[in-house]
Design a protein around this nucleic acid. Structure first.
Lengths: 138, 138
DNA sequence: CGCTTGTTGCAAGCTGTTCGCAACTAGCGG
DNA sequence: CCGCTAGTTGCGAACAGCTTGCAACAAGCG
């Protein structure tokens, strides 16, 4: 199902801003701030306004197409395609790279929270800050 | 070593704003936003300005007395006393409560990252959003 | 092809945080 | 106990990220 049908099936419309935002997200693969997304969309069509980008991101998030992660790295939220896999982020403070990983670690955490803390986690945000493999400790 | 000596030993001074911020942090035990801290400080002394609170928080963080955690719950950063124990946060989306837990789970995560991903984590931010024990799923 | 209703661009507004600057004061040295 | 000086403060303006009210606009159903 393409994005147009998907939107229509929920009573929404496919518009220029939405198509552009979708393209940017799809081609970038994630970890973009709203500002970056807006910038790229603007490149493709300068007439698209920032607020439309924000509104589109909110809509896509409501439809579970994308997910907002707060990497706390610079106060700006980042967006990435939503996929069912639990994942986590590694932020390298040396090279600034944000990498995305899928692993059993998040599922294990969820199980632990449920068993030991009686907490039903809807989403788990795991962000590790440090040195990545390439940026060996000086 | 009390806060006054600690500051002086680093070439800083103990001032009214700093003492008040310190008191608030010590008595609250953590999870306060800068706004909340400013509010409580303001209660004790309305002459203390918000910017001083922010500057004080920054200073205390530099001295590793407190730590900023971005719980991403409302765009505002939260502050808590820095202690060596690894810990994580549970944010209940029903009652809004933010609870703080210490557990082996973070250490296990750090080990996993190092072993499996070659990532030397300096700090690990683990935030779970969901329903706490008291707020059973409706 | 026309109408209805969801969307848009714009601009103003809001929250959280930072900064420049002149006035002020903590606390060291006498 | 006092004076000096460099660290701090309060203030206001500025800033970044994000949201919103509104009138003009257009997607896409019939």
């Amino acid at each position: 199902m393409d994005i147009g049908e998907l939107l229509r099936s929920h009573g929404h419309r496919l518009t220029e801003p939405r198509r552009l935002v979708w393209d940017v997200l799809a081609s970038a693969g994630g970890h973009l701030t709203a500002g970056e997304i807006a910038g790229r969309v603007h490149l493709a069509n300068p007439d698209v306004n920032v607020s439309s980008v924000y509104r589109t991101l909110g809509l896509f998030a409501d439809l579970d197409l994308i997910r907002e992660s707060n990497l706390g790295v610079d106060g700006a939220a980042r967006w990435e395609p939503a996929h069912p896999d639990e994942h986590f982020h590694l932020v390298c403070e040396a090279c600034g790279d944000v990498s995305h990983h899928v692993g059993e670690i998040v599922a294990a955490t969820r199980a632990h929270l449920s068993t030991h803390h009686g907490f039903d986690a809807r989403s788990i945000e795991l962000v590790a800050t440090g040195r990545c493999d390439a940026c060996a400790p000086a």
